[in-house]
Write a protein that binds this DNA or RNA. Sequence first.
DNA 1: CAGGTC
DNA 2: CCTGG
Length: 376
Amino acid sequence: MKIWKKLKFPAQEFNLENTLVNGQCFNWRKIGDHHYEGVFSKYYVQVKRDNDAYVQYSTIPPNENPEKEQLFEDQFKSYLNYDANIPELYEHWAQKDKRFSQIAEPIHGVRCLRQDPWECTVSFICSQCNNIKRITQLLETLRKTVSQIVALNQQSQFGSEICEIDQDDGTRRKIYQFPTVEQLQTATEKQLRELMFGYRAKYLVAISKQIVDKGGQNWLESLRGQPNEKIREELTSLPGIGSKVADCIALFSLDCANSIPVDTHVFQIALKLGYVKGLKKDSSLNNKLYLQIVQAFRDKFGDKAGWAHQIMFAGDLKSFQEKISNSNSANTSAQNSKKRKIDEIKDQEEEKEEEEIKVQDVDTKRETRSKRRKLN
DNA sequence: CAGGTC
DNA sequence: CCTGG
């Protein structure tokens, strides 16, 4: 029998879908309408919303006394950056950039999470050339297997198993905590490769060792509050972490609300919105350009530019997914699904001429290369 | 060729 | 470079 706890949280402040599965974390899965499950800290958690004013959550194991319950609630609130006033920030950003409001309007309540830095690090190393579904699957397998390895090494039956839950098909599924730095270190590259981590396996093994040597979890957490540049330097010195992954870790787990992870996707958004100009046709995302885009977002949105950026990212992702699920006919879906929210905004607007030319230029190249929808 | 790194 | 769509 589940015990549901209420947490005051207006829908405009926190949208489950837009926050939990928008690509900033990979530990939540949708299990129903407005209903998600995930592994958080030492708990298996379900969160749902059936009311505009609050969300409800339930944990396994349950918290057996009010003190523990309060502790969990505080921890969960911290994870959700509970004190941040998201609607107010939306309004602020909308004023900074008129296109922001158009892009963000359909996706209210996106919150940037304050994740565990270690889990975040592993997650984004796995994210390289990968998609949300597979990353989520990979991390689930990681929790399970490392737990089993740990159990074997300790000659114990359990490892870091949390519980076992019933599934729809009648079978039971075990849930495991995310491995600690020390625990992951006990896995070999070979073992991880067998789990289909591919070339990311060697990064994980190497980075576990290096972080343990630096002081493990405590060292990672000690980065919080340090200057953005310092954090970036420390992280990129580790194997498997470049600019993009470092900025993800900084933004999603180390309190750097103005870090901007620029992946190829954000790169495209920046081109569309004219944040970078004067590029050659075949410009790739090199380091200089990366920094240029980061600066453009910061100039535009200010000290929490990273949060604003994540909303744009989520919005684009969402329309992308909707386009796919809405298209029944296979022959048109491949073309239409690629036409994202940002494109629509562009279509509606009268762009400045100089901007139009550049954007169009990039478009032409891209469309031709990947055989997309016809140009208007 | 992909939500990147060496 | 791993693996998958």
